[in-house]
Amino acid sequence: MSHFIEFRNVSFRYREDQPWVLVNVSFTVQADEWLAIIGHNGSGKSTIAKLMNGLLLPQQGEIFVDGIAVNEESIWDIRKRVGMVFQNPDNQFVGTTVRDDVAFGMENHGLPRQLMLKRVQSSLAAVGMSDYQAHEPHRLSGGQKQRIAIASVLAVAPQLIILDEATAMLDPKGRLEIMETIRQVQETQDLSLITITHDLKEVIKADRVLVMNQGRTWLEGTPREVFAAKDALRDIGLDTPFVTKLAAELTAAGLTIQREPLNHQELLEELWTLHSKM
């Protein structure tokens, strides 16, 4: 079993008299993989996230996490494996101190005290917040709050972390810090990562991208493959990175770009090669 997550023909709607939010969705996520999910508002991205840890259950189809079918009986096993961080950190704090807050999830899972003490230390260290143990969470800055939220999730030692627009409320530098934190953790521990985001700078760093449109999986591939479909992406309300747009215009203006560039460096290399040939 190499898939960590598998969606098999999943359909979901919130109420019987409402339209389907997800229609026949199938995909897999491998262990240690970083998958980015993008799509317009209302395309079903967040619903997918909530289905993955049993916050919602599908009406049709099946979902497997680490080989276990997600249902009401397995929810607690699933949640040990899948941690989530949401957009607004203020809605996620329960403890009066950072330390208590990080411990909360572990208490729910009934971990022994000695282990909890150790994990509080190690997960706060992982996000660079060791000096804040006795602070009140709600007095921290937005970026610091999100790091605490991530530490709380890490403490439960999940195998998958889902970031559901977890950096949307941060400024650009705050976003970068959070993503670097997560990447470092991912490199040192076995961890799959799913990010749901509109931030293209995040998307291009993922291993694979899943594009959702109107409740269906619309396109799946590496960032390079996905952004190559730039016109089609724009038609479904999504944006493409600056270099992708510029490369398209350069092609339209008569240059032959060899390989779809993903960042400045790659596009500059292309230009340099072309220039030295002239």
């Binding site: 510029l246 215009e249 240059l255 230009l271």
Partner: peptide, 12 residues
């Protein structure tokens, strides 16, 4: 971006 591309092409 289209105009920028033209200037870059002229440069190259």
């Amino acid at each position: 971006i289209a105009q920028l591309a033209k200037e870059l092409v002229a440069m190259v």
